[in-house]
Design a protein around this nucleic acid. Sequence first.
DNA 1: GAGTGGTCTAGACCACGAG
DNA 2: TCGTGGTCTAGACCACTCA
Lengths: 245, 245
Amino acid sequence: MQSMPSRRHVIANDIRHKISTGRIKAGERLPSEAQLATRYEVATPTLRSALAVLQSEGLVEKIHGKGNFVRYPRRRVTYVGGGHALRTESSTESGIRVSVHITNLQAHGQLIGLLGVPAGSPLTEFLCLSHEGKSPHSLARIYVPRDLSPTGVAAESHCCKSVEAKLAELRPPLTEVLERVTARPPTHEEAATLRISSTLAVLAITRVAADSTGRVVEAALLVLPSDRADVCFTTHHMTDERTSG
Amino acid sequence: MQSMPSRRHVIANDIRHKISTGRIKAGERLPSEAQLATRYEVATPTLRSALAVLQSEGLVEKIHGKGNFVRYPRRRVTYVGGGHALRTESSTESGIRVSVHITNLQAHGQLIGLLGVPAGSPLTEFLCLSHEGKSPHSLARIYVPRDLSPTGVAAESHCCKSVEAKLAELRPPLTEVLERVTARPPTHEEAATLRISSTLAVLAITRVAADSTGRVVEAALLVLPSDRADVCFTTHHMTDERTSG
DNA sequence: GAGTGGTCTAGACCACGAG
DNA sequence: TCGTGGTCTAGACCACTCA
């Protein structure tokens, strides 16, 4: 398998080594692809495929018309499931800022099934984009039935925690949280928003939370790039509550 | 973004359409890349990049020296977390067979940390490879301290459920299950074993289960190709047990 | 306009699989 | 041996960014 090291892998390994040893620093631009191709004595498509390896590892970011840049190492963030910490656990202390855009809309598509509401019923969308420094980090779309929506949260709010707090105050305690995790390539829009290559998979989490009456009070679609996020669940079993395998 | 449809996407869309409408059936071989390149009037690298799109979607499988084949649609399978169903929920009724290979080994690497045992302590590995028809489906490596290992399970056992059953009998009830889900490209070995392209992400689940004494009785490394698996968690909150967000 | 990456061409040669 | 895919070349032309 890896017995035949192709040139692109040799080149990718060399550049990766230069990055990890600090000979090329985070934020710096690599030499142009033409220069690199000359230096490594390969044709441009070969060199580009080497860079593609590094892109898919999240080490290098290509910007059309500008060049290839060494990415700042992203803090790896853990999403904790179960409805306890609704945001990533380290967001409070890691310099991650969240901007929120609030929109009113009507239920359509998969939202109808997730929220269990009729098509067209009024919803509020909270579009949360978190940033680490200047770079986009992850994406969340939270949908709440309009009558549960915290009207007191200003649309210009730029702290997702305030939204979460308001939501938590308004509604009864959650009794059931269902979370479905898939991995898929990002859509074009997601790749552009998060500035990731379309070859880097994202973890897509669909979260549905219900209150004690069984009413779904929130549906959330989370998109976490796989190079900087993982998902963690802890399940405690009461010894008498245990369900047989 | 998608305003400029590149040729490879046009070609990929065309072939995808022919597959989804049944004009090319599952298991069939596509015309050779040279023939396709001629038919679509593109050069071979362009055609190959079109096929790469379909590979990354799991629609087409390349076999070196033989050709490109339309893959049989894989049953999408849901891994249910929380330690209730230790295997995929639909494995009992979907014709998925599991072969198990049992090995004794000593704790090393990440297993030390996961199981909380000293380096070199005796473990038993259950290497489970599930098949759907003739095709490999997913991969699991389960590690158990040797003294908890069910010696009664024959190494030639080819039903993973029997292993799970033996394990469940032997040990005390699990009280805490921790599951970490990440998405990453498969290793070369995993890609070869599962016959997936190295561009298709896998869901990697690390599961650690402890009994009531806090002893870790099992660590499992699961590898689920993202085109055929998702992961689902349900959390129930006692109203008095609720943790604040 | 100068420099960058994005896409594509029309070949060449190598490695794998089956007969 | 032959047909397959795997890799690579040396260029061409287009699109984007920035001065």
